[in-house]
Amino acid sequence: MESDREPRWLSAEEQGVWQAYVQATTLLEDHLDRQLQRDAGMPHIYYALLVHLARAPHRRLRMTRLAQDAKITRSRLSHAIARLEKHGWVRREDCPSDKRGQNAVLTEAGDAVLRRSAPGHVAAVRQAIFDRLAPEQVTQLGEIMRVVAEGLQPEGTDADLPWRR
């Protein structure tokens, strides 16, 4: 049902902030992707999946949970895990508590590639963001991003926010 109300258009200042955000996030993702492709032979999303698994108990997560945590579809996750399996960085195993479910498990080789690529990735993140901001700006950026993420988080999944764990 369409609303008869006029949309709340962005003000000139809001439009400027929005465009700066879109440009910065696009450039940042491209920067991180290029760095990880060059240094580790993987896109940023694969690196993020390895990080999620490395932080998980026993370096394993249900595939459905990993998709939720990584904020990607199950089909995209399945494709990514297949590629990570080809490299020997991840393996799938049946979930012992649910025969229909599967776990993704970080292998020793996956842990090794993560350890090798982490210093370059951290340097790229630091150079792109933290070296450009004053300490109070870092605090403000964190507060702003938490508010935005909490507002977009699907209802009933607050526990999925990493800073709340």
Results as ranks from 00 to 15, higher is better:
8 R>C: 04
8 R>W: 11
10 L>D: 05
15 Q>N: 05
16 G>V: 06
17 V>W: 15
17 V>P: 05
18 W>P: 00
18 W>V: 05
19 Q>C: 02
19 Q>P: 00
20 A>T: 08
22 V>I: 13
23 Q>L: 13
23 Q>P: 00
24 A>R: 13
27 L>P: 00
29 E>I: 14
30 D>S: 08
30 D>K: 11
32 L>G: 06
32 L>F: 15
33 D>E: 10
35 Q>F: 06
36 L>Q: 10
39 D>F: 08
41 G>Q: 01
42 M>Q: 15
42 M>L: 15
44 H>C: 10
45 I>L: 13
50 L>Q: 05
52 H>R: 11
54 A>L: 02
54 A>W: 11
54 A>P: 00
57 P>N: 10
59 R>Y: 13
59 R>M: 11
59 R>S: 12
62 R>D: 12
66 L>R: 03
68 Q>E: 14
69 D>H: 08
72 I>F: 03
76 R>G: 02
76 R>K: 12
77 L>D: 03
77 L>E: 02
78 S>M: 08
79 H>E: 09
80 A>Y: 14
81 I>N: 02
83 R>K: 14
83 R>I: 01
86 K>L: 12
87 H>Y: 10
88 G>L: 08
88 G>R: 03
90 V>K: 00
92 R>V: 00
92 R>F: 03
97 S>F: 14
97 S>K: 14
98 D>N: 15
98 D>K: 12
99 K>A: 09
99 K>Q: 07
101 G>A: 14
101 G>I: 02
104 A>V: 01
105 V>D: 03
106 L>M: 02
108 E>F: 02
108 E>G: 01
108 E>Y: 03
109 A>T: 09
112 A>D: 10
112 A>Q: 14
113 V>W: 01
114 L>C: 04
115 R>D: 03
116 R>E: 12
119 P>N: 08
120 G>F: 06
121 H>D: 00
122 V>P: 01
123 A>K: 13
124 A>I: 06
124 A>V: 01
128 A>K: 00
129 I>S: 07
130 F>C: 01
132 R>L: 14
132 R>T: 05
134 A>E: 13
138 V>S: 03
138 V>L: 11
140 Q>R: 15
140 Q>E: 15
144 I>H: 11
146 R>D: 13
148 V>S: 04
148 V>A: 13
151 G>F: 09
151 G>Y: 05
155 E>W: 09
155 E>H: 08
156 G>Y: 13
158 D>R: 15
160 D>L: 15
163 W>T: 02
165 R>W: 08
